[in-house]
């Protein structure tokens, strides 16, 4: 088993408010790693460090090391554009850009400088297929992405991220606004995608974490309480807090 991401003594402050406290963990390649925890536990902050999106917030201080493929992205001068191509994100709320389905997905590849229409079409098709959306979209590539249903929009956002050809995909509660059927479609897509990608899934939904992740982490008030193979975390939680959380006593 190979670690794709290694986090050492990570601490994050918003002003003087500490939101992550001494996080240490390794995330494996070609697996889905779930991150769960109640609101305010720091889980979203954690993943927004991995592609340097946290820098759009004001007054953030980050300490510690985060290695992706052995490169410390916190303390070395990594190119943000390159990093974001390698680490793609799907947000909680689907946010389509106000343009067509095709152009939404082609946005990233075009930024890379790909102009050839056939090449773009191939990327768009592949990405939509991987997100289980091709059949629904193949005749609607030129319709505005704003006209799709919520579930379709979220899979579009997934496809758009895949079109970057990333190695790591971050998903920040991607199903929080979706109905059970749309959620199932996304989960199917993710289980299929882990063959090629390293996936990190933040979710409030413990059942979802149990269903599709291989490893899971439990965050609580900025601390990493427990981390291990999902089966073990859910059957023999080492910590009382974890047990209370997954059994639905709080959260």
């Amino acid at each position: 088993m190979k670690a794709k991401i290694t986090v050492k003594d990570l601490e994050v402050f918003f002003d003087k408010n500490q939101v992550l406290r001494g996080i240490n963990l390794s995330i494996n390649k070609n697996m889905i790693t779930g991150i769960m925890g109640p609101a305010g536990s720091g889980k979203s902050t954690f993943i927004s460090i991995l592609n340097k999106m946290l820098e759009f917030e004001d007054n953030v201080t980050i300490k510690g090391n985060v290695y992706i493929d052995g490169v410390d992205i916190i303390n070395s001068d990594v190119d943000q554009v390159e990093l974001r191509r390698k680490v793609g994100t799907v947000f909680a709320v689907p946010i389509p850009l106000p343009r067509s389905v095709f152009e939404n997905i082609a946005y990233g590849p075009r930024l890379k400088g790909i102009k050839d229409r056939d090449e773009l079409f191939t990327i768009v098709k592949e990405s939509l297929e991987k997100a289980f959306l091709w059949d629904e979209m193949k005749d609607r590539l030129n319709t505005s992405a704003l006209k799709l249903s919520g579930g379709q929009q979220q899979r579009l956002c997934l496809a758009r991220t895949l079109a970057l050809k990333p190695e790591i995909i971050l998903l920040d509660e991607p199903c929080s606004g979706l109905d059970p059927i749309s959620t199932a479609k996304i989960e199917d897509a993710l289980s299929d995608l882990k063959k090629e990608y390293t996936i990190i899934l933040v979710s409030n939904n413990t059942k979802q974490i149990a269903r599709i992740t291989d490893y899971s982490a439990f965050f609580y008030m900025g601390n990493l309480i427990e981390y291990g193979p999902t089966e073990k975390v859910f059957t023999y939680p080492a910590n009382k807090k974890t047990e209370d959380y997954i059994s639905g006593k709080f959260g």
Partner: peptide, 16 residues
């Protein structure tokens, strides 16, 4: 603001 965030996450620079 969310549109800008999405664009950055898709590897766009500020000017792009």
């Amino acid at each position: 603001r969310s549109l800008r965030i999405v664009s950055y996450s898709l590897s766009a620079t500020k000017w792009e």
